[in-house]
Design a binder for these strands. Sequence first.
DNA 1: GCCAACGTTGGC
DNA 2: GCCAACGTTGGC
Length: 140
Amino acid sequence: MAYWLFKSEPETWGWDDQVAKGDAGEEWDGVRNYQARNFMREMALGDRGFFYHSQSDKAVVGIVEVCAEAHPDSKADDPRWECVDIKAVRPFQQPVTLDQIKADTRLSEMVLVRNSRLSVQPVTETEWRMICAMGQTDPD
DNA sequence: GCCAACGTTGGC
DNA sequence: GCCAACGTTGGC
């Protein structure tokens, strides 16, 4: 199983919106960046991801699961844009902020730190476990 | 609100 | 195919 990170502005689409969709999940639509799209193409059913709030929050706030593999983005007028569906699994007991992540040198290689603008990114298993621990949240 | 980083577009 | 111009994102 692979691990990922999904970034969203909470004012546009936040964790609460994601939770409201329940197990049916929701398309992770709106990605118009090839790198991010390509990562979504690599995702498999059951892969896990962090749900990250950018801008005002700048924190990992929950865990999501891929519940549909890449398919055309229903909101795009161009079929080259694809996306997966994700559903909320559980919230973080304690959100893990970008400051905390940056403060830990073991996480300095994270894409979140190195390329802050990429909205969909891979996370290593080590990073996954470390951040779950920081958030006092079950990683599985 | 500013600006750095980055991606995309379009003229040549 | 290069590169300048421009737009967007997101941290500060």
